[in-house]
Design a protein around this nucleic acid. Structure first.
Length: 426
RNA sequence: GGAGGCGUCGCCUAGCCCGGUUUAUGGCGCCCGCCUGCUAAGCGGGUUUGGGUUAAUCCCCAUCGCGAGUUCAAAUCUCGCCGCCUCCGCCA
């Protein structure tokens, strides 16, 4: 959630952000009003509560008839205190509800607007000219089936649409890719983590996944648990309610987990193959750092993503996502999109978000404020970014295919896979 | 799933039976100061986290696993929940 003090001091900063996202600006005034009401309500309660407490001490010291008289006098105060407390609690809850509805303040300078208003920051590599090479490229599903690497039909039989079996070299390829991601992360100083994929409601909400995109999330009713769509959720919850020591730099984790997404509202989109599925695997970077370091850390995460993309040798571009296309917790997001030859367009392979202090505020993750004299605390910044997912297989297969349906394994991946060329079985 | 025990301000710990004089005891650790040729020891002070108020200090409120209840008053009594430990049962 955003900082109520910031909204109080600089309401226009919040209005500008809401406008860039295409969201309601009126909520700012509603919050200011609720904030006033909360503070006066609390002041009123606390004043009477202090009176009640000092009265209690007199009661304790008194004896006999005098005590009985004091007790009956105290009853009236007691009732009034309860009323005022209830009012203060209600005012506090009302403010909290409003503040939670506000998405993170976007970072100044990012593009305004929606899904199509991104800025292309850079394009890396060039797409192969299959016409010049003299053959029509096959799509990833056809290639994978030729390699006996993927079984969509039986996936649908077992789990329904958008489920699949990775099989044989397909299963090996995914493991190789994710192992390469973990190896790079460990090399860079990340702590590798295999995370819970079921989490409690407060963690899910804290990471910001129960607001606008709640219908994207699988929920287990009987246990009130949620299946996570990324290990970001568990890694954000990992340090909940803690005071971290970031004096020697960011805390960086690389989470490996299955990811579950309902893909509600995407009927008919990407129905072929494993571009858009309900379950996949991902290695995700997650970083806790000081707020003033967050922008630089965001660049570092992007650089690590680029390193991984370089290893699979596919053409890609980097976009700076527009404000309206950001998730609630994100203040800025860079996506790396790989070229998919048979679609003639770029598809997202990685996504890195700077959530500034938004998630940390909800999850109560702090550090000792290095700028302050005493024990003051402040919220840390959290960031995340993708190092590899099942979807990467699509880009690898399509971009490295040969006329006979075989696929050349990118050199960096060979030590992890142990195979140089994937050959069709038929 | 069943039985029992435990949960106190970084760590350990007193307080709980028997509600009020608790501003939650003491020790360790840590921080500041004094003392000291230096270090140690010693002495004095400080040391949960939110919130309200304030220019700031002061002050005030909440916080004894979480929540509700009883009461003029709850760390203390009652109920529910969560976590940890021990034992029993069941099971991959």
């Amino acid at each position: 959630m955003i900082d109520i003090k910031l909204l109080r001091d600089q309401p226009d900063a919040v209005r500008v952000s809401q406008r860039a996202r295409g969201e309601d600006e009126g909520i700012v005034d509603a919050i200011l009003t609720a904030d006033e009401r909360r503070r006066s309500s609390i002041a009123e309660f606390e004043a009477l509560r202090a009176e009640q407490k000092s009265f209690g001490k007199q009661v304790a010291a008194a004896k006999g008839e005098q005590k009985a008289a004091l007790v009956s006098a105290a009853k009236a105060t007691s009732d009034r205190v309860k009323e005022l407390q209830a009012a203060a609690t209600a005012a506090d809850a009302e403010l909290a509800t409003l503040v939670r509805r506000v998405p993170n303040i976007v970072i100044e300078g990012i593009p305004s607007g929606g899904e199509d208003d991104y800025t292309v920051l850079e394009t890396v590599g060039t797409a192969r000219d299959f016409a010049a090479e003299g053959f029509e490229p096959k799509d990833h599903l056809e290639l994978a089936e030729g390699l006996d690497a993927l079984d969509m039909e039986r996936g649908a039989k077992v789990g329904g649409s958008r489920f699949y079996f990775l099989k044989g070299v397909g299963a090996l390829l995914e493991l190789a890719l994710l192992n390469m991601a973990i190896a790079q992360a460990v090399e860079a100083g990340f702590t590798p983590m295999i995370t819970p994929t079921l989490v409690k409601a407060d963690v899910m909400a804290g990471a910001g996944f129960l607001d606008a995109h709640a219908d994207e999330v699988y929920r287990l009713e009987a246990d009130d648990l949620y299946l996570t769509g990324t290990s970001e959720v568990a890694l954000a919850g990992y340090h909940a309610d803690e005071i971290l020591d970031l004096s020697s730099g960011p805390k960086r984790y690389a989470g490996w987990s299955a990811c579950y997404r309902r893909e509600a509202g995407s009927y008919g989109k990407d129905t072929r193959g494993i571009i858009r599925v309900h379950q996949f695997q991902k290695v995700e970077m997650f970083s806790y750092c000081r707020p003033e370091d967050a922008a630089a850390e965001h660049q570092r995460l992007l650089d690590w993503e680029r390193q991984m993309l370089a290893k699979i040798e596919v053409p890609y571009r980097i976009i700076d996502t527009a404000a309206g296309d950001l998730g609630g917790p994100a203040a800025r997001k860079f996506d790396c999109e790989a070229w998919v030859p048979t679609q003639g367009r770029y598809r997202e392979l990685t996504s890195t978000s700077n959530c500034t202090t938004y998630q940390a505020r909800r999850l109560n993750i702090r550090e000792r404020d290095p700028r302050a004299e005493g024990n003051a605390t402040r919220h840390v910044a959290t960031l995340n970014g993708t190092l590899g997912t099942t979807r990467w297989i699509v880009a690898i297969l399509e971009n490295h295919q040969q006329a006979d349906g075989s696929v050349v394994v990118p050199a960096a991946l060979r030590p992890f896979l142990g195979i140089d060329v994937l050959t069709p079985t038929a």
